[in-house]
Amino acid sequence: MDPLFDFFALLSAIARSTIDEAIGRGLATENKGEGSLYDPVTQVDRAVERALRSSIEKRFPRDGIVGEEYGALRDGARRVWSLDPIDGTRQLVCGLPTWTVLVGLVEDGVPIAGMIDTPRLGELIIGQASGTLLIDADGTSELATSQVTTLADARLSTTDPYLFDADAAPRFDRLRQAAMLTRFGLDGYAYGRLAAGTIDLVAETGLKPHDWQALVPVVRGAGGVIGNWRGGDDMNGGDVLAAATRPLFDQAVRLLAG
């Protein structure tokens, strides 16, 4: 592994230690959602982001940092670290194991490296242009997406179908009906599974940059395609589509874009 991979591994270790300590103090939860939307944040989210920020500041004091819980530091910096300290907090408060820690490195507006860390499963996935690696109890292995090219053979995932608005819901349903099967509830972990070749397609809306910036290098480093529902690269609108192959991506776009 190169120094950047090593640093992501260090961030994973720091996050995992912080998580264990914070959970040991109890899982106090607040709702930051509006109206009927339940959008929880815990002291774990905040403790992890503080720990990650401190480590990045020490190693890269000139880089910017943008996190879900504490906003932007050195806004306008050429290199920016994007932090989602706990992606899938709803899973965390339900005692499910597939919540993740997401860290992305963005240079001149382009995500160039990222990690999806799944502490309770012991899986750390790190991606950049040179490839995507999985580090787990079995060691280190290189990941590659599946070679699925048709929707009829595709395993599709989205976090929650009830998060789609009235415009996106019927478009996603067209995609769901065309796919072989659909699984829900994985949040950022679904993109790790796509990189590992066990999920072929992920479609979501309403994502913030900290939700997707770490995912882009992981998917692309494993040979996959990730962009928006219209087939472009700009995901700032919040609609994200990831696929194992270009033909599969293009087929999904035709159903989602209309």
Rank of each mutant, 00 (worst) to 15 (best):
G139I: 12
A15Y: 03
G122W: 07
A9G: 12
D200G: 04
L121D: 12
L134N: 08
R246G: 02
L181I: 06
I65F: 04
S54L: 12
D173W: 03
I19E: 14
C94E: 14
G127S: 02
V106Y: 06
R230C: 09
S54Y: 08
A257L: 02
L248Y: 11
A9Q: 13
D6N: 11
P85E: 01
P61H: 12
D136H: 07
A190C: 07
F164G: 05
A244K: 01
T29Q: 12
V80F: 03
Y189S: 12
A242W: 08
A15V: 03
Y191L: 15
A243S: 06
G139L: 13
P111R: 09
L181R: 09
A47R: 08
G223E: 03
E21P: 00
F172T: 02
A137E: 15
A196P: 04
F172P: 02
A9W: 03
G227T: 04
S54N: 13
T150P: 00
P85V: 01
G109Q: 02
G258P: 13
L96A: 14
D234N: 15
T205W: 00
A113M: 07
L92I: 10
R220T: 11
V103G: 12
D234L: 05
T140R: 15
I14E: 12
T18E: 12
V218Y: 02
R120N: 09
A195R: 03
A51K: 08
L4R: 13
D87E: 08
A129S: 15
A137N: 11
S17W: 00
T98S: 14
Q128D: 15
G95K: 03
L215I: 14
E21L: 11
D187T: 14
E34N: 07
F5N: 10
G221T: 00
A252E: 06
